[in-house]
Amino acid sequence: MFGVQEIDAASLQQKLAAGEKLRLIDVRSEGEFAQGIIPGAEFMPLHTVPLKLDDLKASKDPIVFYCRSGNRSGQACWFLKQHTGVEALNLSGGIIAWYHSGNQIVAPTKAA
């Protein structure tokens, strides 16, 4: 997505495996979230991102947004950058690319 920094699944997995602190945010719908997440991700549907700008701006850890394919998460990155100046990373290809790269998807630990 134009003007948005991206990270691929392999690079994200390397950062997580190295213990790098990242804030993983899943911007999919509640139903999609319930189907499985990247371990450690938090739920923030795309339509709620504008309501969370103060929280996101104050985040101490780098933010990585993801969705199903990378489109909605790219929108979240762009919106955050435009309204706060904070540059988040977009998981290129979304959770689909994550899964097809052989990475783990787990059930959410609590209801969305």
Rank of each mutant, 00 (worst) to 15 (best):
M1H: 02
F2N: 07
V4W: 10
E6P: 02
E6R: 12
I7H: 09
I7R: 08
A9K: 11
A9D: 01
A9N: 05
A10N: 11
A10V: 11
S11Q: 14
L12Y: 05
Q13T: 04
K15Q: 13
A17K: 13
A18K: 13
G19P: 08
E20T: 13
E20G: 09
E20Y: 07
E20I: 08
K21V: 07
K21T: 14
L22C: 04
L22M: 15
R23H: 12
R23V: 00
L24C: 02
I25N: 00
I25T: 01
R28F: 09
S29Q: 13
E30S: 14
E30T: 12
E30I: 13
E32N: 10
F33V: 13
F33C: 00
A34V: 08
Q35W: 02
Q35I: 03
G36Y: 03
I38N: 10
I38K: 09
I38L: 08
P39W: 07
P39C: 11
P39L: 06
P39I: 03
E42M: 06
E42G: 07
E42I: 04
F43P: 02
F43N: 08
F43M: 07
M44A: 10
M44F: 04
M44C: 05
M44K: 01
M44E: 06
M44Y: 01
P45T: 11
P45S: 00
L46N: 10
H47E: 14
V49L: 13
L53V: 12
L53I: 13
D54P: 02
D55Y: 09
D55A: 15
L56K: 07
L56V: 07
L56T: 01
L56I: 10
L56Q: 05
A58W: 11
A58D: 06
S59H: 11
S59K: 08
S59G: 05
I63Y: 06
V64I: 14
F65N: 02
R68A: 01
G70T: 11
N71C: 02
N71Q: 03
Q75A: 09
Q75H: 10
Q75R: 15
Q75E: 14
Q75M: 15
A76G: 01
W78C: 06
W78F: 14
F79A: 09
F79Q: 01
Q82W: 04
H83P: 00
H83N: 15
H83C: 07
T84H: 13
G85V: 00
V86W: 04
V86Y: 08
E87D: 15
A88Q: 04
L89S: 03
L91K: 14
L91T: 08
S92P: 05
G93N: 08
G94W: 01
G94S: 07
I96N: 08
I96E: 05
A97T: 06
A97L: 06
A97Y: 04
W98H: 12
Y99E: 11
Y99I: 05
H100A: 02
H100P: 00
H100Y: 05
H100N: 12
S101T: 05
S101H: 12
N103P: 05
N103S: 07
Q104S: 12
Q104T: 09
I105Q: 10
I105Y: 03
V106S: 15
V106K: 12
A107V: 12
P108K: 06
K110C: 09
K110H: 15
A111Y: 09
A112Q: 10
A112S: 14
A112N: 09
A112V: 12
